[in-house]
Amino acid sequence: RRRVRAILPYTKVPDTDEISFLKGDMFIVHNELEDGWMWVTNLRTDEQGLIVEDLVEEVG
């Protein structure tokens, strides 16, 4: 499975499927959606939700 790491922190918009995260958080990518969004699991918090790919980098 594809893994990505947050390069910046992010605070979710209330009442959306987004998740908040810290710089350095690792995610497993489940689905890549339109307009650069990804459905992921945050490995630190075990939370699932949407993040935008501009805020993460690939992990080898």
Rank of each mutant, 00 (worst) to 15 (best):
I7P: 02
L22G: 06
E53V: 14
W37K: 11
V4C: 08
L43S: 06
R2V: 07
I51Y: 01
L22F: 10
L22P: 02
E32C: 12
Q48S: 11
E58Y: 08
E47Q: 11
R3P: 05
L8H: 12
E58H: 09
N31K: 15
I7G: 03
R1M: 15
V59H: 07
G36R: 09
G49M: 01
S20A: 04
T41A: 05
W39Q: 05
D35P: 07
R5H: 05
D25Y: 02
L50F: 09
K23E: 11
V56R: 01
V13C: 13
V29M: 03
F21H: 02
T41E: 07
V56Y: 03
Q48I: 13
E57M: 09
D17Q: 14
E53G: 13
E57T: 09
W39I: 06
N31I: 14
L33N: 08
P9I: 05
V56L: 05
P9L: 05
Q48W: 09
V56A: 04
G60I: 14
D54Y: 14
P14S: 09
M38R: 04
S20G: 05
E32S: 10
V40T: 04
T45V: 03
E57W: 05
M26H: 11
A6M: 01
K23V: 12
T41K: 07
Q48G: 05
T45A: 03
L43P: 03
V56F: 04
K23N: 06
Y10C: 04
E32N: 12
G36A: 05
V4L: 10
L33F: 13
G24V: 02
E32R: 12
N31R: 10
V56I: 11
N42L: 14
I7S: 06
D54W: 15
V52I: 13
D46Y: 15
D46E: 14
N42F: 02
E58G: 08
D17R: 13
R1T: 14
V29C: 02
M38G: 00
V13A: 12
W37A: 06
P14F: 07
H30G: 05
P9D: 13
I28L: 11
R3V: 14
D25N: 00
D46H: 15
H30E: 12
E58S: 10
G24M: 04
E57G: 05
D25S: 01
P14K: 10
A6Q: 01
G49P: 00
E32W: 07
R3T: 13
E18M: 08
T41C: 11
T45L: 03
V52R: 15
L50H: 05
K23L: 10
R2C: 09
E57Y: 07
E47A: 07
I28V: 12
L22D: 10
M26V: 15
E47D: 10
T11Q: 10
E18H: 05
E34G: 15
T16H: 03
F21C: 07
L55Y: 15
M38K: 04
G24E: 05
E34R: 14
E57P: 00
E47N: 05
D25E: 03
G24T: 03
I28M: 10
V13Y: 09
R1N: 15
D54M: 11
D35R: 11
V59N: 06
W39E: 05
K23C: 09
V56Q: 02
E34Y: 12
N42D: 04
T11K: 09
E47I: 06
I19E: 00
V40N: 00
V40W: 00
V29L: 05
K23F: 08
D25L: 03
L33T: 10
V56H: 01
V29R: 01
E18G: 05
Q48L: 08
V52Y: 15
G49H: 01
T11D: 10
E53D: 12
D15L: 10
R1D: 11
E34T: 13
D25M: 02
P14I: 09
Y10E: 01
Q48Y: 10
L8K: 13
T41G: 03
D17K: 13
T16I: 02
F21K: 00
I28S: 08
R1E: 14
G60C: 15
R2H: 07
V13E: 11
E58P: 11
R5C: 10
V59K: 04
D35Y: 12
E32K: 12
P14C: 08
N42R: 04
R44M: 07
L8M: 14
T45K: 03
E18S: 05
T41L: 11
I51D: 00
E32F: 08
Y10D: 01
M26D: 07
F21G: 00
R44T: 07
N31Y: 14
V4I: 06
D25P: 00
V40S: 03
G60E: 13
A6W: 01
N31W: 15
K23Y: 08
G49R: 00
N42C: 10
D35W: 11
V29I: 09
T16A: 03
D15I: 05
G24P: 00
T11S: 11
G36L: 04
G24F: 06
D25H: 02
V40A: 12
R1H: 15
G60L: 13
G60D: 13
D25C: 03
K23H: 07
I19F: 02
T45C: 02
G60W: 14
S20Q: 03
G60N: 13
